[in-house]
Structure formats: structure tokens, C-alpha cells
Design a binder for these strands. Structure first.
Lengths: 237, 237
DNA sequence: CGGCCGATTGAGGCTTATCAAGGCCGGTGG
DNA sequence: CCACCGGCCTTGATAAGCCTCAATCGGCCG
């Protein structure tokens, strides 16, 4: 992990914009104070890998700022995007009990700031603050539900449906500046394909088609959803 | 849920064969005692549904005996098997925070005995016994890892690979009586297809092929793995 | 013995991946 | 400032893979 760069500084957790996030929202001031002393801040530039499948798992990361994709790769290097992480999300918990290795990789899509907390510290904290464990449980449950839904979609949807769904996923992960405005997430066609579970050419064709129907509009890699409901209908299973 | 049938009786948890299961293994005697008083035993015959996607979530179930499939259905009734649950496993935790509805269905494959514990009781227990929450966290993490792997496979494997993988999944879930003996799990071709993410005809064709190569051997719905390593190689991604 | 349900097998057609060619930037260097 | 270059996107042709449909087979139960 990169060290904090010159000129930047680590703020106290109680000042942090993500202290109301899923996992930390019920933390007492005392708990936040402890975390604040234990955490290490890290900066990753766009394209840099934050953690890697198969490497030894050291702790968890809170995303403070930025955009992160979490993905797995098969032996041919083909990658598959499992989900995105945004400010307030936690990554680094998909580690195996047995081998203590990360089971997925994470990469910064844009410049990203994270707070790192090693497992040992975190586990000690949960002993004193059980609400942390409960919140983490909730977080896991949400991840699990999302992934179950995704598996169902992968198994039953056609390619156009999967692409439509991928665009909606991109929207719900990072949103837009307003209705019919471009998504706040810029991905290559290959990345959209890895998210949808198809190929970049198919993505291109489906998006061209959606464009012709004025359901979405593209300018280069920017995608705007013009007819939200129609897109949702396409992705309905 | 069915009431305990005449002649059967609810044993104390400390006598139960699954008290060393994933979630309960670190419970103190005191904790087990409390659970024992709160639990309700339920019996489900083969083919009976234990819980249903979309219905209101009331609590969790420990599988004491039997075989359970956990699945989701799309709007056309097409189902997709997410995983199996065996004695010692916990089901009923895939519930939404927002709507408090189960997000997947569970069905008894063979006659199955479960212990039911309502959420409220369970949550109160976790307050007094934080180790319960930690174990549950572990359990979730394992489920999540498994599902991530499954999603990757769905997205990248060919049909023959997915079928080979489905057979291996069946084996690791319920095992066999010994090498080259039939799997302890009997599914229809349609169910295997729902597990692999393909159609029953494709499953039939792939299994015929594996049979011809003497990698597996079938007698009706019984499947025996003759050449384990070859099967694993087929399913390698 | 007949009927029924699931498994098997084959044919056909559709969907999707692959391959290849061409176009559109954005960056670089003259 | 312009020309070139490389990467990514687009588009079309082709072929492979997969699903669907339909016919047949086989076992099980009444």
C-alpha cells in the first residue's frame, strides 16, 4: 500500500465522511476513537491494485473516497467483476478461513483513498463492541443476497438482458448527476463485459442497439440512461 | 412447519449430533441450554418446502438430519440451485434487511429434521454470547466465498465444464459411501441442470458422454465417479 | 399389462463467441 | 501544428455451442 503522500494527512475518524457507513454507523465515539488510532490511510491511483486474489490477507479496508472494482480471474486471465465498492464500503473480508488468502482482487478504478485496519485489531474491537460484529453481519448478508441474485441472473438471462442489467448495476453503484445524465462510472467495453458475463463485442452490439432505440445514449465511454423504465423491463427476469 | 409427529420427541441440544457444527461449536453449555429451551423441532418429508422466497422471515433453521436444496426462481418458474444444506448447516439467514423476506427458497430433498429458532431469540442470544455472532460471521464468509466462485464459474465455463463441476459439487456436499461408489445425493436431471445453469437435455448428453469415457458410471439416477482426477480436470477453469 | 413420467437421443435453428477489418479518438513526436 | 501510431470501439461474417422441440425409450406403479 502506498504511504500517505506529502501534504496529505490522516484525519480523525470522527471527522470522516464515512463514519455513518454501513459498518461503522452504530459505533460509539469511543470505538471510533480507537479505530482512529489503529487505522492506516492508503492512497491508490487509478488502475492500481489494492488487493490480490491469492495473496495473504492482512486486514480490511474502508473505502473513504474513490471507486473500486472487486473481481476474480480464471486461469486464462479472463476476469469477472463481482461487485463495486464505493465510499463507506468495506473490502478485504472475502478471505478464506483455511488459507487466510484473499479470494478476490480489488482494483482502484479512479484515484482512491482507503483506511486499513488489520484483522487482529478489528477482531479485538469486536469483542468490546459487539455491535460492530452485528453490523458486519448485516453487511455480509447484503453482499450475499446481491451475489445470489447475480448468480441467478448469470444462469438465466440472455446477453442483451445481462448487458441491460450491467448498466443498471453501474448506475446503482455510483449513480448519475441527474436524470438522463451520464453515469458516474467510466468502464471499458471489456469491463462491462466482465461485469455482465459476456464479451466486449456483444456489449458493443447491445449498446449500439440500445442507442438506436434511444433507451441509452453514449458519448465515448459515457453512458446516459434515457428511458429508465424500458431498460429495467429489458433486465427483468 | 410441521409439528413433531407422534412418537418423536425433542432431545436436548447437548445431546444433539450437530452441536459441534459450524455455528454452534463454540457454544458454552449454558448457551446450548438456552437454545434447547427456545428451539422448536420441525419435520419435513421429501419434496416439502421448508421456506419460500418472498415469504416473511421468522427465524433460522439448523438442519439436524436430511438434505436440503436452496434455490431461487425467476419469473418463468425456472429455478436455479444456489447450494445445498446438510446436517449442521444453518438456513434462513438470506433475508432482506428492508423487507424482512426470505430471498431464497429451501426444499427438503429427503426427509429432513430441523431446529427452528426465531430471530428475536437468536439476536438476544448473540448479545450474551458474542462468539455466536463471530461464528455466524465465519459461516457467512464461507457462503460468500462459495458463491463468488460459483458466479465466476457460471460466467466463464462451458456446459460440459459446468456439468462436471455440478457432479463434483454434489459429491462434496453429501459424499459417497466410498471411492467409486454412488453419490449420496439423488437428483433429477432437471435439478442437476438447475445446479449447473443449463438444461436437462444438455445434462443428459454430457453425462452420457462421461459414461462412455468411463469417467462416471450411472445406474438410473445414481451417479458414481470412476475417475475423480479426470473429472476435476474437466472442471478446472 | 397399460399408462405415465422422466431420461435419452437426434435434428433444427437460434444465440453467442470468435475472428477480422475498419474507424475513431488521444497521445506523441517531429 | 500536423502526421503518425496505438489502443479501444464498432461492425460484419463465420462458426461453434447451446437451447428447443420432438420422438423414442425405459422404468415404475397402479
Amino acid at each position: 500500500m502506498k504511504k500517505p503522500v506529502a501534504g496529505s494527512h490522516s484525519i480523525h475518524c470522527s471527522e470522516c465522511s464515512i463514519k455513518n457507513c454501513s459498518v461503522l454507523r452504530h459505533c460509539t465515539d469511543e470505538c471510533l476513537d480507537l479505530i482512529s488510532n489503529l487505522k492506516k490511510v492508503g492512497y491508490f491511483i487509478a488502475g492500481q491494485r489494492i488487493l490480490m486474489e491469492g495473496s495473504s490477507a492482512k486486514g480490511i479496508y474502508f473505502i473513504e473516497k474513490g471507486q473500486v472494482k472487486i473481481y476474480k480471474s480464471d486461469s486464462r486471465g479472463q476476469e469477472f467483476i463481482l461487485r463495486f465498492a464505493r465510499p463507506g464500503d468495506v473490502i478485504g473480508f472475502s478471505a478464506s478461513d483455511a488459507t487466510n488468502e484473499y479470494l478476490a482482487s480489488a482494483l482502484a478504478i479512479i484515484d482512491t483513498t482507503v483506511c486499513f485496519l488489520d484483522y487482529k485489531s478489528f477482531m479485538e474491537l469486536t469483542e468490546h463492541f459487539p455491535e460492530l460484529a452485528i453490523e458486519l453481519l448485516r453487511f455480509y448478508r447484503a453482499e450475499l443476497s446481491g451475489l445470489e441474485q447475480k448468480a441467478l441472473k448469470l444462469a438465466t438471462m440472455s446477453v442483451p438482458q445481462k448487458v441491460a442489467d450491467a448498466i443498471l448495476t453501474m448506475e446503482s453503484a455510483f449513480g448519475t448527476e441527474g436524470p438522463q445524465k451520464p453515469l458516474n462510472l467510466i468502464l471499458s467495453r471489456q469491463d462491462i463485459a466482465s461485469l455482465a458475463g459476456t464479451t466486449k463485442e456483444q456489449v458493443s452490439k447491445v449498446i449500439s442497439d440500445l442507442n438506436a432505440q434511444r433507451i441509452v445514449e453514449t458519448h465515448g465511454k459515457l453512458i446516459s440512461i434515457l428511458q429508465h423504465e424500458k431498460l429495467q423491463n429489458l433486465a427483468r427476469i
